[in-house]
Amino acid sequence: MRSHDQMQKYAYELEYGSWYEDYHDEDMEATKEQLSHTKNIEYHFLYQMAYDKNNMTVGFGDEGFYDFCQVTLTDGRFPESDNEVVVSDEFSYEIGQHIYIAISDQLQEMEIVGVVHNSQPIFYDIYVASQQHYDDAYFYSDTALLPGVAFSLSDENQYGYDHNPAWVGFYTIVSCVVVMIQASCLMALALILLSTTLLKKVSENLPYCVPLA
C-alpha cells in the first residue's frame, strides 16, 4: 500500500463493497443511454418496488449489484422465481416461511429462500427476483466523476471510495503530503525540545562569576 488512503479503500471494500455514489434516478432510460458512453466505470442499479404490509422495503438489484454493494447471502440462495424472496438478517424470518408482499397493487404470497446481510442500512429489507415493474431506481458507481454523463451525483455513502484514476493519484499524493507535514512537525518539535534542553544544561555548567566591589 502506497498510502493510508489506499489501506482505507481496501478495508472499506471488504466490508461495504466497491460502490461510491448513490443517485436517485427519475429517468432510467435516459441514464442508461448516458452511461453507455462511459468507459472504465463499474455501475449497477437497485430497483425499489414497494413496501410490504409491515412497511418493509422491497426491491431487486441488477446482475452484479449484490457483490458490488456487498449485500451478502448468509443462508439459503437468491430468489429464482417470482414467488421467492430473500430477507435481511435484521429480522427473525426463517427459510421456508411465507410472507405477503404487494406487487403491482396485488398482494402476493412469497416464500423465503435465503437470508442476506446488508453492508449499509440504506439497502432493502426484502429482495425479489428481477421484475418488470418497479417504482423507483437508484444508481451506484465506483467513480464520482463520470465523463460524458450530464447528471450530478449525490454522495450517500460515507464509506465510499472514488476509483477515478486521477482522483486515486490525487488522494495518494495528498495522503503522502499530510504524512510528511506531520513528520516534519514532529521533527521540528523534537528539535525545539532538544535545543531547549541543551541550552539549559549549558547555562547550568557555566561558571558563576561574582562581580568585584
Rank of each mutant, 00 (worst) to 15 (best):
P207I: 03
V86H: 00
V174K: 15
Q6P: 03
F45L: 15
F139R: 11
I101E: 02
D27H: 13
L189M: 13
S175I: 10
I112S: 01
A190P: 03
L107V: 05
Y51A: 05
V113W: 01
N83R: 02
T197K: 10
Y140Q: 01
D89V: 10
M110G: 00
Y159F: 14
L107Q: 15
L14M: 00
N54P: 00
D67T: 04
A11H: 03
A50P: 01
M110F: 00
F65I: 07
F45M: 14
V87R: 14
E84F: 02
E109L: 04
K9L: 07
H44S: 06
F139T: 11
D27S: 13
D142I: 07
L189C: 15
I103C: 00
Y10Q: 06
S154T: 15
D62E: 13
D155M: 06
S92A: 15
D89C: 08
E111A: 03
G17L: 06
C185N: 12
A213W: 09
N118S: 08
W167T: 14
I95E: 00
I112M: 08
A190K: 07
S81I: 05
F65W: 13
L107A: 11
A190V: 02
S88F: 05
G17W: 00
L191G: 15
K39Q: 12
S152N: 04
V86M: 08
Y23A: 02
T57S: 15
Y138I: 02
E94L: 13
H4W: 10
V128A: 04
A150D: 13
Q70P: 00
C209R: 12
V168K: 06
W19M: 02
I192N: 10
H4F: 05
Q8K: 15
Y171A: 13
E29H: 06
A190L: 10
I103H: 04
W167D: 11
M110V: 06
S141V: 09
D22W: 12
T172S: 11
F68S: 12
M1R: 08
D125C: 02
H37N: 12
S18M: 04
T196C: 05
A183V: 14
D135F: 08
F68I: 07
L146S: 03
K201L: 14
N54A: 09
I173M: 14
T143K: 09
E15L: 06
I122E: 05
Q120N: 09
A129I: 00
Q6R: 14
C69G: 07
H24F: 07
S92V: 11
E15C: 01
K9V: 08
Y208I: 14
Q8V: 15
H133G: 02
T38Y: 01
V116D: 08
H37I: 04
Q120P: 02
Y208F: 09
Q108R: 10
Y12D: 04
E80G: 05
Y12F: 12
L189P: 03
S184E: 05
Y208V: 13
Y20M: 13
Q48V: 07
E84H: 08
D125G: 01
H44K: 07
T74A: 08
Q158N: 13
V58T: 08
G96A: 08
S154R: 15
S203Y: 15
C185E: 05
